[in-house]
């Protein structure tokens, strides 16, 4: 009961926020809304019993990635040109096409999705799964995990290289 109420509450907020994120005018507002969005999404994760993922979501997504967005917005000119450009008619046609495509696609998907049976649903092991996640991560997924660390390293280096101002003296 409580779970259902929480879910629909969070879901309605998330829907509104998701739409708002892509429609608001100012990037800062969008980032703030996205933070809330992710925060509430973490709530949904917690509701699903994925506490570790929820916390990770908050720490990394909300606490780090979106701070980066915030930084970039502040480093760039706050008064930057935010005008939407492009042919309105063409955009509208394409917009409708994509929307209709998504609607059609989702309709078909739900139509064809095999309903979950009671036997499929297992939720016992989900309590306190941080330990299991750790075990799986370091046993079955050790190579992907190491590759992910490499990816992060590459990300750091390339981000620095790309965004670095071309320095006058080559010693730097």
């Amino acid at each position: 009961m409580g779970e259902a109420i929480s879910f629909y509450f969070l879901a309605s907020i998330l829907t509104v926020l998701s739409i708002a994120v892509v429609t608001v005018q100012k990037p800062v507002v969008a980032v703030a809304l996205l933070v809330f969005n992710l925060f509430f999404l973490a709530g949904v994760y917690a509701l699903l019993g994925a506490h570790f993922i929820a916390v990770i979501q908050v720490i990394i997504y909300a606490g780090a990635i979106l701070v980066l967005f915030m930084f970039v917005i502040m480093i760039l000119n706050p008064d930057m040109d935010l005008k939407e450009t492009g042919d309105k008619g063409k955009k509208f046609i394409l917009f409708s096409a994509v929307s209709v495509g998504f609607l059609f696609f989702s309709f078909k998907m739900f139509e064809q999705m095999a309903p979950l049976t009671k036997e499929d649903i297992v939720s016992e092991i989900l309590e306190d799964n941080t330990y299991e996640i750790g075990l799986q991560l370091f046993e079955d997924y050790i190579w992907p995990f190491e590759l992910a660390s490499l990816l992060i390293l590459l990300g750091i280096v390339s981000a620095i290289l790309i965004s670095r101002k071309p320095s006058q003296n080559k010693s730097v």
Binding site: I53, I60, L137, Y141, A148, L151, G155
Partner: peptide, 28 residues
């Protein structure tokens, strides 16, 4: 969560890793 399989959550872990890189490089 519904299937009681932790692989999905681990995948999320990796997706978040990827998202961090993507955001970093993209913003750069």
């Amino acid at each position: 969560s519904f299937l009681g399989d932790l692989d999905g959550q681990i995948m999320v872990f990796f997706v978040i890793t990827l998202a961090a890189c993507e955001a970093g490089i993209g913003l750069a």
